[in-house]
């Protein structure tokens, strides 16, 4: 029994040493797994499963092309997403705080918001003059709903204490919206923005599979068509990193803006 106790104590100590590095360890384990499986498994078509070394060489070689693709993708993502954030937040605040507008718009939102935005892609491409405009439209629709729904929920549930204070300070309607409802809804708006950004990336890359001649999604599709799997896998990893950095940036901004949330 003493020995058992000693063993658990030793285990605890070992775990403590890794505290804070669990995430790094998992990445390491996955990389080792990838290396081992790609070199040692007797695969029928080894080209489909490139080794880490081959993949990173492909990543390095296609970096100029990927950077160009990133620029092209961001020319779609940024306008579509920003427009969605601005209009979604503003309209959400209006719908969340003005009762008759809520009654008018809510049924439509309930029907339109759950439609998977990917189904708009073919129509948007047919409808709009250029691929870029149609892709911006699709990204906009996809990111708009999460921002709108969260902003409306935030505006509809402004805590009574803020409303009381606004009344005591003699705020008019517009001042109340700008100085109280907007800041009080910001935590919800940022939740919506995170969901919206993830959706925006999905829609961006899917739209690019359909009709782009450059961009991140297009890169992956192009090299898959030519069976250049190292470059394709490199494209997937690169897109993942771009998405991760964008989400981290949003999180950074959120922390700065919502410093007062405790």
């Amino acid at each position: 029994m003493n020995e058992a106790q000693h063993n658990t104590a030793a285990h605890k100590k070992a775990f403590k040493a890794f505290k804070g590095f669990e995430g790094v360890l998992l990445f390491l384990a996955l990389a080792i797994c990838w290396q081992l499986t790609s070199t040692m498994l007797p695969l029928r078509n080894a080209a489909l499963y490139p080794t880490p070394a081959v993949t990173f060489k492909a990543l390095k070689d296609s970096l100029p092309e990927l950077l160009k693709g990133t620029w092209s993708s961001f020319l779609i993502l940024v306008p579509g997403y920003l427009l969605a954030v601005i209009l979604g937040a503003l309209w959400g605040i209006v719908v969340g705080s003005v009762k008759w507008i809520h009654r008018a718009f809510d049924p439509f939102a309930k029907v339109a918001a759950p439609i998977p935005p990917t189904v708009y892609i073919p129509y948007a491409i047919a409808l709009m003059p250029t691929f870029r405009v149609s892709a911006i439209l699709v990204v906009f629709i996809g990111a708009f709903w999460p921002v709108f729904v969260n902003a409306a929920a935030g505006a509809a549930s402004v805590p009574l204490r803020y409303r009381d204070n606004a009344g005591i300070l003699g705020f008019g309607r517009f001042e109340y919206m700008r100085r109280v409802v907007f800041p009080a809804s910001l935590p919800n708006i940022f939740s919506g923005m995170a969901v919206g950004l993830a959706l925006a990336f999905i829609l961006l890359t899917v739209a690019e599979l359909f009709g782009a001649n450059q961009g991140l999604g297009r890169f992956v599709q192009y090299y898959a068509d030519y069976a250049d799997y190292p470059r394709m896998v490199a494209g997937i990893l690169y897109t993942g990193m771009v998405t991760f950095v964008s989400m981290a940036l949003l999180d950074f901004i959120k922390r700065r803006v919502l410093f007062w949330v405790r």
Binding site: D164, G170, V180, P183, W260, V261
Partner: peptide, 17 residues
């Protein structure tokens, strides 16, 4: 409510932002 009558609440008179 009117600014003629100011109110101090127990612990939430200020806007946290």
């Amino acid at each position: 409510p009117d600014i003629l009558r100011g109110v101090v609440f127990q612990d939430y008179s200020l806007f946290p932002w």
